[in-house]
Amino acid sequence: MQIKINDVLRAYIEPLTESEYQALERSLLTEGCRDALVLWEDVLVDGHNRYQICQEHGIPFKVTENTSFKTMEDVKLWMIDNNLGRRSISDYQRGVLALRKKEIMTARALELAAEAAAEDAKIAPPEGEDAPAKKPAAMPLASREDIARAARLSTATIGQIEKIQKTAAPELVEAVRTGTISINAAANVASLSPEQQLAAVAGGKKELQKAAKEVRELRAASRPQKEPKEGRPASTVDYGDVPSDVAELRAENIALREKNAALLEEITALQRRISELVSA
């Protein structure tokens, strides 16, 4: 069988880092290709790196065809779920995959709702009879909680990954993808201008951490102080000489508490929107 490579599918999952690719290559050379490559008809779906390495070194491999796929979206959803089930991928990769799953499922829900509305418009029930039951729409990942559950991450981390995807320079995305900077720190650096982001990335890990710290401190300074309750002194936040990672976790904890109320409102609004689409 002539295996075909679809460039969209090959690029759909985050690529391996150089060290990960080399580790896979060593494993295949030592143990052979134990897992079969997955095909959609003759198109390769899972195993692009293994296929490339096996071709380069003449390593035998097996293939299996998944006959359940009907559309490209089916293939993408399977690829997402398959990779979310792997332990080796990073938290950032998990978040990106879960957000992609949300996009596909939301689009499907809207499409099914539109089809149901069109059918209702065509077929009116006889006078005095009730309308037939509507076909339920596919439920999307409606809220950050749903997305976080699919990715096994916190809702705050999902929000940070969304911000990175929207505002981070490609160089900053690569830095967080390869583990040079944490998701939390990258989300802070993504608040800076593209030029400032590039300068921080060029300075390496220490410069990125410094830039993230400066953003956090600027936000803390601009945040209005809460009025102390009667009979209680005003609380102050002074981390003294504690390690920077401890201070970062404390600052993140404060920020997460403040975001909680806003996130609950967002979830309620999204769930209301889904109910409207299903019952439309």
Rank of each mutant, 00 (worst) to 15 (best):
S68W: 10
S279P: 00
H57I: 05
P136T: 07
D130Q: 09
E111Q: 07
A221S: 13
S193L: 08
V43K: 11
D120T: 06
V96P: 01
A151W: 01
T155R: 09
A168K: 01
I183N: 03
K101Y: 03
R223I: 02
N49R: 12
N49L: 04
I183F: 06
R149C: 11
R177F: 10
Y12G: 07
E111I: 01
G240I: 04
N184L: 15
G85R: 07
D241T: 12
D245P: 08
P233Y: 06
V201G: 02
R34E: 10
T64A: 10
A186T: 02
R86Y: 06
V75N: 01
G32E: 06
A211M: 06
L249C: 10
L97A: 03
T167G: 08
A138V: 14
R87I: 12
A221T: 09
T236I: 12
E111M: 04
K101I: 02
R10E: 14
Q196Y: 10
R26L: 13
Q165E: 14
D81R: 11
D74A: 05
T106C: 00
G203P: 07
R216N: 11
A118H: 05
V38R: 04
R223A: 13
T167Y: 13
A234F: 00
M79R: 04
R216Y: 10
F69A: 02
L198T: 13
L264I: 11
E195W: 06
R94D: 05
A251K: 09
N184E: 15
Q52F: 10
T178C: 12
A113Q: 01
K134T: 10
Q52G: 07
S182C: 06
I181V: 15
N49H: 14
R223G: 00
I164H: 02
Q93E: 14
K4F: 14
N49C: 07
A151S: 05
K166G: 09
R94M: 05
A107L: 04
R257C: 08
M105I: 07
E195A: 15
P140K: 00
G47A: 09
A113V: 03
I274S: 01
E162V: 06
A118G: 02
K259N: 13
E127M: 02
A280G: 14
A221H: 10
I89V: 13
V38L: 13
A255D: 15
A186M: 05
L256M: 13
A185W: 03
A116P: 00
L277V: 08
Q271R: 12
V63Y: 09
R272W: 00
M79H: 04
F61I: 02
G128T: 03
V8K: 15
F69C: 05
A190H: 04
V201H: 02
E65L: 03
E129Q: 12
P233E: 11
A168R: 00
L141T: 03
C33W: 04
L97Q: 01
D241H: 07
V75T: 06
M105C: 07
N253D: 13
R232H: 11
T30A: 15
R223K: 14
E111Y: 05
T167V: 11
I80G: 02
V201I: 09
R108A: 12
R177H: 10
L277E: 06
R108F: 08
N83K: 08
E195K: 12
L37F: 04
D35H: 12
T71V: 08
P243L: 05
L270M: 10
T155K: 10
A185E: 12
A124F: 08
V246A: 13
P15K: 07
P233A: 09
A269C: 05
I274H: 03
S244A: 15
A211F: 04
I274F: 11
L270P: 00
I13Y: 02
